[in-house]
Design a binder for these strands. Structure first.
Lengths: 201, 201, 201, 201
DNA sequence: ACAGGCGGGACAACCCGTTAAT
DNA sequence: ATTAACGGGTTGTCCCGCCTGT
């Protein structure tokens, strides 16, 4: 009787996910919408259809939950890079194109901006473990984008990579205070122009 | 030079300023360092060498204090634009140059990023009065920068203005999670390159 | 006769009353509407178009103000009794009749009940100086009503007086929770019937 | 195993009751003694040997606790009426007599007066949910007393019922400001006389 | 004497993250 | 695994004195 209703795959409902996953998913949704400081552990437990105790058994503390949340975001970004390489193996040019459209989707879809950037802003304590995760990801992202640019054959890969990063980050924050029709709407146009300038003509 | 009873400089202490100013200054400092949610009214009152009652007499609520804080930032930005026009009247080219160095100072000096942008992230409630202030400022800023670019004689003023905005905003957020030596370090170089491309050769 | 600089009659406005009176009047109005615990000294000072300092200079503390407030109510009740004797000197029968209509007006006009009774309820501390004032007034009122009844020539003056007191007090409290159309509406009818029974036929 | 740890009466201590009950009991006691505004939630939680959070888990807010408190009083009054009918089924005369002695006990035992009446006085906000509870109870009480009087065979049931209500309410408030030896001491005598007058001789 | 801002400490209601007991 | 307990934190208001200017 114990094991049966566990049933991770028997019925296709969402509730069947293990508590840990449900908590993480609920936390992510709520953190993104209301900010980390804006939601309490109780609200997360409720949204995950469980209780605080389960949350503490799985994560130890809210901070650890935040870390897990950030890691899950990082993991998703990793998946995107993996898919980029899988879909266009070795082809930097196509990867750059794909990266661009992913970036645009990213800007357009999420009005709350980059989860990592907003979290970095909320995590004011410099020694918060979450900050390191974010910083590592940003370093990693930079490295990958530079590599991508180099493979695409541009003249100054690291400069282009950083420029694209600034444009993307800028577009995502700008969307929040200036709206979707503000400067962020020009991201694609500008990014393409910049890339063109770095490509050998 | 104007007013003796102002006594802002007679004794170098902060206490001589009126409570309202002290509170606003303390709030600004603390909000910037720890975020809006990260400081309580009591800490602000303490930092302003007064007490909560004085704070509530002058601002009515924390939200109103936040609004006043945002408005003071907006006022400062206004002053910058005014100075820009005053120092280089009618000369768009020089104003653009000055804007650029101001932007760089802005990025370099403040590790916590744009106070308005970070506040926008913390103010998750869409109907918070502070949001409107921020949005208005961003709209205003965009208009001013477009005008500046047009006067500088660039080919597509609004595109350049938005691009510069994205780069600046991106640099300021990037600094927080990727550090001063991350992509934000390339802001100047990239911005100049972009401007060059828009200038008639 | 007292004060020339008082200027009580120079301009006919209400503001010309001395601060003490204004404060007392404001306190009375606010206490009656919101209860003693329901208003702060600042609100009273504001309503009296003055400030807290004046209030504290004149009354020393909120408690003393409450005492003064209760005494002013007592004084008004005294005036009513005085008027009763003045208007119908020696005529107990007419005084009783007049008392009855005053009581009815009292019930009908004031939806918040007897200021003394409600204050007694709010002043839970048994040693509050205000309580004594209230109790003294009630004792005094009883004595007067008994005298009045005796003069009216009823058979058991003290019993009738207490009965009428109960009916009046009951009507005033009942009005608050049961409304004007509740039991309090029957006050007059019942009181008259009771009186009739005590009168020699 | 199920029933044992319930143990409502095994040891006579108060702790064994569930927190909700303890909180409600503590609130009732404190509200009655010091008034609703006179006690804070912390004091209630302490008196109930629990903490504020438990209070808020069970009642949501102090206002809700007040409502629950008033409802518990109403429930008790209901029980009294039920017992009245159970003990003297159909016998209006005996019920009236029983009602009278209950009223006297009520006056004599509780020096703080009717909990509902005093609460009505403290709840100055006309839209407070507690007010409706009180008003409903008063309406209900009136209806029941009229019915009782009719069954007792008096000449004008509704007039007698309201008269008795006024006398009782008056006695209860009078006790607070005029003491137990004031007019309230005459309640029984007066009530009996009134009833006699309404009975067919 | 009066107006009024200022300061201070206590306390209100309410909610947080976290840990025990059951 | 649910319910309870806990201490400290939040915003906000209380009453009251001090300390300037007039």
């Amino acid at each position: 009787m114990v094991a049966l209703q566990e049933s991770t795959m028997i019925d296709g409902e969402a509730q069947v996910r293990r508590p840990r996953e449900r908590i993480l998913a609920a936390a992510r949704e709520l953190f993104r919408r209301h900010g980390i400081h804006g939601v309490g552990v109780e609200a997360i437990a409720d949204a995950a259809k469980t209780n605080k105790m389960a949350l503490y058994r799985h994560f130890g503390s809210k901070d650890e939950l935040v870390v897990a949340y950030l890691q899950s975001v990082v993991g998703e970004v990793d998946d995107i890079w993996t898919a980029l390489e899988r879909d266009h193996p070795g082809d930097g040019r196509k990867q750059l194109k794909a990266w661009l459209s992913l970036a645009e989707v990213c800007i357009a879809s999420d009005e709350r901006g980059c989860e990592l950037a907003t979290s970095a802003i909320e995590l004011t304590a410099k020694d918060h473990p979450g900050r390191k995760i974010i910083e590592d990801l940003k370093v990693d992202h930079r490295k990958r984008l530079v590599t991508l640019c180099r493979r695409a054959g541009v003249s100054q890969p690291s400069v282009l990579a950083d420029t694209l990063t600034l444009l993307l980050e800028g577009a995502r924050v700008s969307r929040q205070s200036a709206g979707a029709k503000g400067p962020s709407a020009k991201f694609m146009k500008t990014a393409k122009a910049v890339i063109t300038n770095f490509l050998p003509h």
